[in-house]
Design a protein around this nucleic acid. Structure first.
Lengths: 189, 189
DNA sequence: TATTTTAGTAAACATTTGTTCACCTTGTCA
DNA sequence: TGACAAGGTGAACAAATGTTTACTAAAATA
């Protein structure tokens, strides 16, 4: 399956954001006949790393994905080839790219749910949200990132932090929701 | 700048994992001369969304990126066009794709540093790590995800949780580091 | 208003693309 | 041992690609 050659293609894509043409692979691989490339590519298509529609080559999701492991139980991760799952982060995290943006978090008001200063949250623009959602909102003209709550009965909506040091925020005049947090990411080091 | 047409191209790329050819853009845009496409693409290249090397078209990082906002201070997010930053998640999160894999977390032993059950961590394969790193390790043949610590002086290395309910783990025989956690991601809902 | 720039059409073209065919070598395995 | 699939070379080719040139209409600008 020439995993080595596939890695060459992967790093070419990483660098150039496109697949190499057959002639380019020719020199990348050090071969001298386009047909060898043709046959190798055919295998990758069969294996599901690449695909072709009307003779235009493109990667598949699998091409970009990292293996996803899981623990069977406290003890052993599933490493077996057949149990591997693959996940492409971009696709996993961003469902609606047109309406999404990122926000760098500051403050520790959401520390209780594991959102810390410096984390990046993925926010999807929308003006409605459900109780429990983490929302980017404007409360009485002041921007903030908090958890949305609703009073029992036909209650008002208000905002709470996930940190006992911050009191709940009840809007004096209006509470305008701007987007909801779909994911958090944090990089170490 | 025809942002609308660029969005068509973006969603084409999202779906097909490649850029459309000029003829394909022709029908995507509803134009009837390849030259109009040529000129539009030329503008996108000038604007930094696409690039070209020896007449092969490819996206740039900016093409994939989401706008990254930040709070100036408690109060207002930077929304101004000129202050926008862009970030491509895949590139940001995975520095070394060949050596990286994902692991679904279970247990709450790292809850103190905001790593919860169900989160996904990005692990980079390596056998050495520094104290303070979150590591995937085998301690006396048992796999675990913990924080690496080193005793003062010329001390032994051992593992600790980020949760008072779990005691530190000193290896009886050996502590084998398998990789270090570079990032965490958590999806809501 | 007159003038320049921008966005589009239409046709022509060299280059490059992916594909196919015939052939050769090598290692696998029955 | 013999057969056969797999991996490679080399040449040939139709189709599609990106580019160029000339021309037009509309919009921006002075």
């Amino acid at each position: 399956m020439r995993e080595d050659l596939l890695n060459i293609v992967k790093s070419f894509f990483r660098k150039n954001k496109r697949l190499p043409s057959y002639s380019e692979m020719l020199s990348l691989f050090g071969f001298s006949s386009k047909n060898s490339v043709f046959k190798i590519v055919r295998n990758w298509i069969k294996a599901g790393f690449l695909k072709k529609e009307n003779s235009k080559l493109a990667p598949t999701t699998k091409f970009f994905s990292l293996p996803l492991l899981g623990f069977v139980r406290a003890g052993f991760p599933i490493l077996a080839e057949e149990n591997k799952n693959y996940l492409s982060l971009d696709e996993y995290l961003i469902e609606n790219p047109e309406a999404s943006f990122l926000l760098k978090v500051n403050g520790d008001s959401l520390a209780g749910i594991g959102i810390f200063e410096g984390d990046i949250v993925i926010i999807e623009r929308k003006t409605n949200a459900s109780p429990g959602d983490v929302v980017l909102a404007q409360i009485d003209k002041e921007w903030t990132l908090k958890i949305l709550r609703k009073e029992r009965g036909f209650g008002r909506t208000f905002l709470v932090a996930a940190n006992p040091r911050y009191p709940p925020l009840y809007p004096r005049f209006e509470l305008q929701i701007y987007g909801v947090v779909k994911a958090v990411i944090r990089k170490f080091n």
